[in-house]
Amino acid sequence: MKLLRVALASLPFLALIPGVLFANRIEPFVLGLPFLFFWVIAWTVATSLIMAIVYKLDPHTHEPDED
């Protein structure tokens, strides 16, 4: 299970290099934004969603918390 969480959390790191190389262009505009700008935003949102899944899968986060 820990391996799955580490693999999930590694995805944004692994996606960044091929993603930026692929997205380094202006066209097509998506949601009114140049493509590279849109891609960085989409990647950021995906990172947050992945971390939410990692959090749900983490047994530490279900323990009761001890201004």
């Binding site: 990647w43 990172t47 971390m51």
Partner: peptide, 8 residues
Amino acid sequence: AYGALAYI
């Protein structure tokens, strides 16, 4: 981009 990776 760097902020998102830093939070991971």
